[in-house]
Design a protein around this nucleic acid. Sequence first.
DNA 1: ATTATATTAGAACTTATGTTTTAATAATTC
DNA 2: GAATTATTAAAACATAAGTTCTAATATAAT
Lengths: 201, 201
Amino acid sequence: MVKKLLKDDHPVNKKKILKAAIEVFSKKGYQRTTIREISTKSGLSIGTIYFHFENKEEILKEVLKNTELIAMSSVMEQIDSMEPYDIIKKINREITKNMAANFETLLLLINTSKDNPKFNSFFYEQFRSKTGEIAELIKELIKRGSIRKVNPENAAIFLIGNVFTMVILKENILKKNLENTYYEEMNEFIMDMLKNGFFKK
Amino acid sequence: MVKKLLKDDHPVNKKKILKAAIEVFSKKGYQRTTIREISTKSGLSIGTIYFHFENKEEILKEVLKNTELIAMSSVMEQIDSMEPYDIIKKINREITKNMAANFETLLLLINTSKDNPKFNSFFYEQFRSKTGEIAELIKELIKRGSIRKVNPENAAIFLIGNVFTMVILKENILKKNLENTYYEEMNEFIMDMLKNGFFKK
DNA sequence: ATTATATTAGAACTTATGTTTTAATAATTC
DNA sequence: GAATTATTAAAACATAAGTTCTAATATAAT
């Protein structure tokens, strides 16, 4: 019944379990997700789940392996032909889109990483890797002379941070009270801040 | 044994329970906190806890009543005599200090508010109230002519949001990997962004 | 074909935790 | 000071959820 597994790949039912787990984790978070729910959602029994995974935490780990919280791959390829303002704007847009899509996992990690060193490390690595990428980009733009000589790491954190806040606010706190255009509007605002500052000259 | 309770006040042991609850909730979050821990911490029995509170959620509600996540009272009194740059800087500092102090409750609310409309409302109200206050202040500064004509609500969200991110990053994700001077350094960076922008003119 | 191995199902087990119950003790009222 | 009410303690209850166990079934090997 079960198809032969490819090397370095998951057996069919393991995939089913992971797919179901992603859905339920994303919707309810790690703590509130039960094995029974994953079982129902995947159409497989509890026994099968525990055959493929040692325990609940291992399922989450496997899910996280395939999750990229902060992504902006498509930006990096085009930066040579773009204006700095547009690069930053595009980065903002890309990160926003991706974070909003992975918002539930983001929350999940914020929660679990507090007490669980492993998940904290995962979070830390991903965050550092992305701020690192953006910092490199900013260094490059500073070299080109188009951006003020700011601390690139802080700038990267600042940029990602703005998006982070937007997403948490929109998806978690203010929810339906915000318009669908919120991300666009807020990103416009941020770009305006970056371009013109806050105070009058 | 129990002292006469003052009107509109809590009996002594109810206070003890609340005090213990704040400690444990703050340290472990709502979900992971057990009644038995609150019992041990307060030195009172489970029965006593359930005498004073209907259930666990009611304890949290009572705790939240006394929590101000975003506070900046001391700023508002002095704004007439201050420069706009210093006002914003001071607001940043105040909010940072307070958010960092209430960080655990902040996380707690982020988690619970996702599924619980009541806690979401609580969060929403506090957030709106504070962004409202800051927005009013910004309106005033725009009137005075010291700040560019930006959208005051967005500006308020932007300011609070920057702090929010800093606190989550420092306290939850990057933890000990960050220096103690992180808040100061990052606030300096933010102020520099607000003053001089990101791009070269 | 027979045997061995891998996989699956789902009932059963275990433990943790919110809540209820009941009896004892303290405080208050008359 | 007796009776009533308020408060406390802690054991008992109920339930939910992670995990284990065992028998059945499918797949692979010889």
